[in-house]
């Protein structure tokens, strides 16, 4: 599954498109958390993060954890400053109306597993 496949299957709203490297990469791991210190410690590199947090620090943390993309659940949307930072960092961002549990379940059904699975 590439990010484009996932976005299409789950009907995600693309806020920041993936760059060419990310676009070609297979996404096999995911993580769901709203505690960014926990994301920093446990999210799998190259994976997607599902979170409710739309704070600017999400971008810094996602960059640090080398994540491929962030999906904002529950209809939450980051402001322009956060989107601009993601563009600078080359981090793909998506939004969805589904809640965290729902979107994580759908990701799992597509074959995206947890960091320790």
């Amino acid at each position: 599954m590439t990010l484009d496949d996932i976005a299409r299957e789950l009907e995600l709203v693309e806020l920041v498109p993936p760059n060419e490297v990310e676009r070609a990469a297979e996404v096999t791991r995911g993580y769901a958390s709203d505690l960014l210190s926990d994301v920093l410690a446990h999210a799998p590199a190259g994976g997607v993060l599902v979170t409710l947090q739309v704070h600017l620090n999400v971008i810094a943390v996602a960059g640090h954890a080398d994540l491929a993309a962030v999906i904002f659940a529950g209809g939450r949307r980051p402001d322009d400053e956060v989107v601009a930072k993601a563009v600078d960092e080359g981090l793909a961002l998506y939004g969805c109306e589904a809640d965290t549990f729902e979107i994580a379940g759908r990701l799992y059904a597509l074959g995206v597993k947890g960091s320790r699975a």
Partner: peptide
Amino acid sequence: RSFGVVGQLGVFPAE
């Protein structure tokens, strides 16, 4: 770990 800015936001929000 709970409810502190660093725990919630990963790094201190200097801004």
